[in-house]
């Protein structure tokens, strides 16, 4: 017996297939709010099949690169036929997932083998990578940001890890009446018919905030720690430079780099972008809020 679940994230459908019982309820919990029953094959951006055996995925090609983050290490290999093989290992060095992506990023297979905690890391990473690869051509960005909603608009807070994105969101929800958290780590930004939207996603970092919701973007703010609070509007290259490093991209893939460039260019034309040098305090949130709202279209 096989399980097949279809999810809709950022308005894009993808499917996850597996033998019954391979994926536990805990692992799929962040995805439940995004589950959909409309299973139209044609509009799927990708289908991932989870395997119980590593045997069929044993090819190794040329190593393209290795990316390290706080959770583990991701190694990318390109195979002679153009497919991509991705190996995930945990900080302790154990391989916990092998992901095989076929040429056009629409079909992928993964083998996952690890303890519960690492299995979540593996499945989330595999799906986030596939999502980034296959959605970039549809004016879609996966953004590393914490996002709040106020009065039907979304406000994204960007910054390097440890800058205080989540803290700033929390300061909004605690001190600005009517604001709520939309996503705490990886929301989806997408342009549809000229409007820039932000969507909640199953990828929300350490915060369990998996909201299936789409709202127009009201502003994007890059945070930087400082011994004072100061907000500065950014345009042109400075706005571009503040958004680019927060968007997931295999920038050595020209097609993807072109797509991401054109989406970011359109976003910075339409959305007010700011730099906020700030302390982790209430005043920072209030200053940011006041500036964003004063710029808001009436």
């Amino acid at each position: 017996m096989n399980d097949c679940h279809t999810y809709c994230v950022g308005g894009h459908l993808f499917a996850v297939k597996s033998q019954k019982g391979i994926l536990s309820e805990k692992e799929l919990k962040p995805y439940v709010p995004f589950q959909t029953h409309c299973c139209s094959e044609g509009s799927d951006i990708f289908t991932l099949t989870i395997l119980s055996e590593i045997n069929s995925l044993s090819h190794i090609g040329n190593k393209i690169t290795e990316l390290k983050d706080e959770n583990g290490c991701i190694s990318l290999f390109s195979l002679p036929n153009g497919d991509i093989s991705i190996h995930l290992s945990t900080n302790s060095g154990d391989e916990c997932c092998r992901l095989h992506i076929y040429q056009d990023y629409r079909i992928a297979k993964a083998w996952i083998n690890a303890t519960y905690r690492e299995r979540c890391y593996a499945i989330d990473t595999a799906l986030m990578m596939l999502y980034t690869f296959s959605s970039s051509k549809y004016n879609t960005l996966m953004v590393h940001a914490s996002t709040v909603e106020y009065d039907g608009n979304g406000y994204l807070f960007l910054g390097k890890s440890g800058t205080g994105k989540s803290t700033h969101s929390r300061l909004w929800t605690e001190h600005i009446n009517g604001s709520t958290l939309l996503n705490d780590d990886n929301p989806i930004v997408r342009i549809i018919d000229g409007t820039v939207y932000v969507y909640g996603s199953p990828w929300s970092g350490k915060t369990c905030c998996y909201r299936n919701r789409r709202i127009p973007v009201g502003g994007i703010v890059r945070l930087q720690q400082a011994p004072y609070n100061k907000i500065t509007p950014l345009t042109g290259i400075k706005a571009y430079a503040s958004l680019l490093p927060s968007c997931s991209c295999m920038k050595w893939n020209h097609e993807m780099a072109n797509a991401i460039h054109s989406t970011i260019s359109e976003v910075i034309e339409k959305i007010p972008i700011y730099s906020l040098e700030c302390l982790p305090n209430q005043d920072a949130a209030k200053l940011c809020f006041a500036e964003l709202r004063s710029n808001h279209k009436v």
Binding site: G236, I237, Y240, L244, K251, W252, H261, S265, E269
Partner: peptide
């Protein structure tokens, strides 16, 4: 980028 031009590392 509009009328501006920039160099980006893409490799």
């Amino acid at each position: 980028l509009g009328s501006e031009k920039l160099l980006v590392a893409e490799s």
